[in-house]
Design a protein around this nucleic acid. Structure first.
Lengths: 215, 215
DNA sequence: AATGGCATACCCAGAAGTGGGTAGCTGCAT
DNA sequence: ATGCAGCTACCCACTTCTGGGTATGCCATT
């Protein structure tokens, strides 16, 4: 990994302590240069315009304009800059949102300094970096226990699956060799038990629980 | 990123050319040592037991025992080794499966050598590394082009989203301040264009495209 | 023996969706 | 300017779903 040029980093975090700490740490690395610090996303945008950083290391939780919404603005302001998100949370929402907005990486605040540096190097090189555990968070699915929590009887679950797969009452009746009227009765109980009135809702429910495949 | 000890890498790929090429490239880096090469996963397992590599760089497509199934065996044989998957495909299935099995990273074969080196360094350091584009593949929703591929008009997309979210024609009509009849017309075009006749199917479609949230 | 949960089956009236049309209006592009 | 695509709106006949019932046989628990 040969860096002939310094990596220009812009730091944005509304916690002064974090900001200073990061700056101090990063400046001990010869190939990294902190070109600016900001405690609000808007400030950071201005600074980015003038300093043209290689990497923008930005916190997610910030007042006024949060980091995730800010990504889009940075993409517009400095399209070449790589956005590396910094967060205390490994929540699926945040991570998904960051990736979707175009962040090049996502680092948790409680990782060792070396990892943050590694992340900066990686995204500066055009790669993506995600803290350990993050990819798992993206994929998290929990079928085992949910199946037990399901208040449905096995017959109802069976019917829910077919319903969610797009089968009509009549089709399900044929498949299960029962009357369509019976299917309707089951459908009623399912909706009642789950408190979901619509077919679309049932489909989403089934998908969430992993009862039916996603593709 | 100071590596005082050499990173011991085990290479597994059933293509001799790839294997030799990788070995040659990696050996030009002073801090990386190739401790073994294997063209089958089983061979690699044996080698791993004796050479205790830091990183196992393994192809996914291999005869007899594929790389993904092999991950589990490596985890058992050499728990400390980091598994870095190498693949020609950025298919969601492969990537998901790799991450779930416990791989520390996923690199595409067509990336520059430097990226492979960076990936090895990163996973050796306890991080995770995913080639550019891979996290997006995990989330399988790249709206820009997907939106373009969607044969729907913006209005239709809007209505599809509401439909999939479980709204009835009438509700959608209220929200969009148009006639329920118009909503039905749109619904017809959507189903026709997508070739999906059922609401459940539309919901699944919308979920797959990331048009609506999963939870 | 009895209670209750489950699966089965049916009735009914009203609401909603389906699939086939037609058609006016706007705006963009050839 | 002409035409086409998209959004709007409506008609009709038909099917399906909805939500409220009732009811019977089975089986396990009490």
């Amino acid at each position: 990994m040969s860096e002939r040029e310094k990596i220009k980093v812009l730091l944005i975090d509304n916690h002064p302590l974090v900001l200073e700490g990061l700056k101090a740490v990063l400046e001990t690395f010869a190939h990294i240069m902190v070109v600016g610090t900001a405690h609000l996303a808007r400030q950071g945008l201005d600074l980015a315009a003038s300093t043209r950083p290689t990497v923008v290391l930005m916190d997610i939780n910030m007042p006024q304009l949060n980091g995730i919404d800010a990504i889009e603005l940075f993409k517009r302001e400095v399209p070449d800059a790589k956005i590396l998100m910094l967060s205390m949370h490994d929540s699926r929402e945040y991570i998904s949102a960051s990736v979707l907005q175009g962040a090049a990486g996502y680092v948790l605040k409680d990782v060792p300094n070396e990892e943050i540096v590694a992340a900066i190097e990686t995204v500066a090189g055009g790669g993506t970096y995600f803290s350990s555990g993050v990819p798992e968070a993206l994929l998290q699915r929990r079928e085992p226990e949910d199946a037990a929590v399901l208040p449905l009887t096995s017959r109802e679950r069976e019917i829910l699956i077919l319903l969610a797969a797009g089968q009509s009452n009549r089709e399900i009746a044929t498949v299960l060799a029962i009357s369509a009227l019976t299917v309707e009765t089951h459908r009623k109980s399912i909706k009642k038990k789950l408190g979901i009135p619509t077919t679309a809702g049932l489909t989403r429910f089934a998908l969430e629980r992993g009862l039916i495949a996603e593709a």
